[in-house]
């Protein structure tokens, strides 16, 4: 474990906590894409199957369980909570997620480290995570309202993978033979998807004004 990866994991955890707090405190999920939350739940389920058969460390196990539980809690709030579910923008959150899931699954069948069920599902989760934020970014463009907490959530979610990029560079130079091409390429694509958002987020922060997205 290195400081970049720990910072990445903590940023990821913090992003989820911020979203949960926003939903719990304001009893509203306005501006939040349920599709992105469901895609992330799929990412965690398909990636953390090894919870059942391999123990890596207490930290690894605890974090996986936290990510799974928080992902399903957010989905429960947005689908079932009597007050919160009324604030969900169903008409605007219309991204066709099958156009993300099917290509990622086909790619995982074609490009993977090993042709086994768990390995293909793990690879699928790596590809899917790279595009899971798209429904959320599209929703932001449509609704224009980027409330502060949702903006912070997306910024931290993008930042965690950028910190992982630094972690991979660090490990490449410090651990002989450490290679993870699939994860590296996918993680780079994932970070690039956020670049446009980062630009407008930092601009709003510098001008100390509410974040607004172009027309």
């Amino acid at each position: 474990m290195n400081i970049f990866r720990l910072a990445g994991d903590m940023t990821h955890l913090l992003s989820i906590i911020v979203l949960l707090l926003k939903i719990q405190a304001t009893k509203s999920c306005a501006g939040v894409s349920l599709k992105t939350q469901e895609l992330y739940a799929v990412v965690f389920v398909t990636r953390y199957l090894d919870l059942f058969y391999s123990f890596i460390s207490l930290y690894n196990t605890v974090m996986k369980i936290i990510f799974l539980l928080t992902a399903f809690t957010i989905i429960w709030y947005m689908r079932k909570h009597k007050v919160v579910c009324q604030t969900y923008d169903k008409e605007q959150d219309t991204f066709r997620v099958l156009f993300l899931i099917v290509p990622c699954f086909v790619l995982a069948l074609l490009v993977n480290h090993e042709m086994s069920v768990t390995e293909v599902l793990w690879t699928f989760s790596i590809y899917l995570e790279a595009v899971a934020i798209l429904p959320q970014l599209v929703l932001l463009q449509r609704t224009k309202n980027v409330d502060n907490l949702t903006g912070n959530y997306i910024f931290m979610l993008g930042s965690y993978r950028a910190l992982y990029l630094v972690n991979w560079v660090y490990r490449y130079f410090t651990e002989l033979g450490y290679r993870q091409w699939i994860v590296w390429v996918s993680g780079t694509v994932q970070t690039c998807v956020y670049l446009d958002f980062f630009y407008y987020y930092v601009q709003a922060w510098r001008n100390n004004e509410r974040m607004k997205l172009p027309g």
């Binding site: 990866r5 994991d9 990821h12 090894d50 391999s54 890596i56 460390s57 690894n60 974090m63 996986k64 990510f67 480290h113 090993e114 390995e119 992982y164 972690n167 651990e175 450490y178 290679r179 993870q180 994860v183």
Partner: peptide, 10 residues
């Protein structure tokens, strides 16, 4: 095949 040290990340 991924080695165990390649499987230690979240």
């Amino acid at each position: 095949k991924r080695s165990s040290k390649q499987k230690d990340e979240l």
